[in-house]
Simulated scan of single mutants.
Amino acid sequence: MFQFIAHLHFLLKATNQHGVHSPFIYNYVTKCLYNKEKTHPNKSYNVVLKSIAYFKIKTAFVASEKLKKNITTNLNYTKTSVDFGYLNYPDLDKFTAINYHNNTMVFVDNIYSSKQTKETWEQIKLLKNVTVTVDVFYGAAVFFRKEQAKEHFKIRL
C-alpha cells in the first residue's frame, strides 16, 4: 500500500524533459533516459545500463552481483574514485563510503519500497555534497557536480 500511495504522489509532482531547466539534466533525460533502446526488462537496471553507456563509465562500485552480470561493458570494479556507484537500497553508511569525484553518478535503487527507504533517500538528498538528483520512482541518480546548484528532479519514464 505504501508503494501505491508513494507512486501517486510521485506522479502528481513528476515532470518530463520540458520541466527541466538544467542543460546537464535535460541532456541526460532526453539523450539517455528517454532513449527508446531497451537494455533490460527491469526498469532500474534499464536506467543503470543506459547511464553507464551514456556517461562512458570506466570505474564502478556495484553492490549487486546480479547487476554485474548484466553489465556488458568492460568496467573496472573498485571502491576508490569511482565514476559510477550502485546501491540496491538507500543506505546512508554505504552511500557516504563511496569514493566519488565531481563527475560520479550513484544510482540508488528501491527508494520507495518502504517508509524507511524513503526516509533514508530524503537524508541522502540533504547531504551537503549531493547537488543533483534525478528521481524516476524505481530508483534515483545522484550527482556531485560542484558547478551546479542543488536541485532535485522527479522525472516520469
Results as ranks from 00 to 15, higher is better:
5 I>G: 02
7 H>A: 08
8 L>Y: 10
10 F>M: 05
11 L>A: 13
12 L>R: 15
12 L>Q: 11
13 K>R: 13
13 K>W: 06
14 A>E: 00
16 N>I: 07
17 Q>I: 06
18 H>V: 00
27 N>D: 14
28 Y>W: 04
28 Y>L: 15
30 T>L: 00
31 K>C: 04
35 N>C: 03
36 K>Y: 03
36 K>N: 12
38 K>R: 13
40 H>E: 11
42 N>I: 02
44 S>N: 07
46 N>S: 12
46 N>A: 11
47 V>A: 07
47 V>S: 06
52 I>L: 12
55 F>S: 05
56 K>F: 06
59 T>K: 15
60 A>Q: 07
61 F>I: 00
62 V>H: 02
64 S>M: 03
65 E>T: 09
66 K>V: 07
67 L>D: 00
67 L>G: 04
68 K>D: 01
68 K>S: 05
69 K>A: 09
70 N>H: 15
70 N>I: 00
71 I>C: 09
75 L>G: 08
76 N>W: 04
76 N>T: 15
80 T>D: 14
80 T>F: 06
80 T>L: 08
81 S>N: 11
84 F>V: 06
86 Y>V: 02
86 Y>P: 05
86 Y>T: 01
88 N>T: 14
89 Y>H: 15
90 P>N: 06
92 L>E: 14
94 K>C: 10
98 I>L: 12
106 V>Y: 09
110 N>W: 02
111 I>K: 04
114 S>R: 05
114 S>F: 09
115 K>Q: 14
115 K>F: 13
116 Q>T: 13
117 T>S: 14
117 T>E: 14
119 E>T: 14
119 E>M: 04
120 T>M: 11
120 T>F: 02
122 E>R: 13
123 Q>H: 09
126 L>A: 14
128 K>S: 14
129 N>F: 14
134 V>L: 12
135 D>I: 00
136 V>W: 02
137 F>K: 09
137 F>W: 15
140 A>F: 09
141 A>R: 03
144 F>C: 08
145 R>C: 01
146 K>T: 11
148 Q>L: 13
148 Q>T: 02
149 A>H: 09
151 E>T: 10
151 E>A: 05
151 E>S: 12
151 E>C: 12
154 K>Y: 11
155 I>A: 04
155 I>N: 07
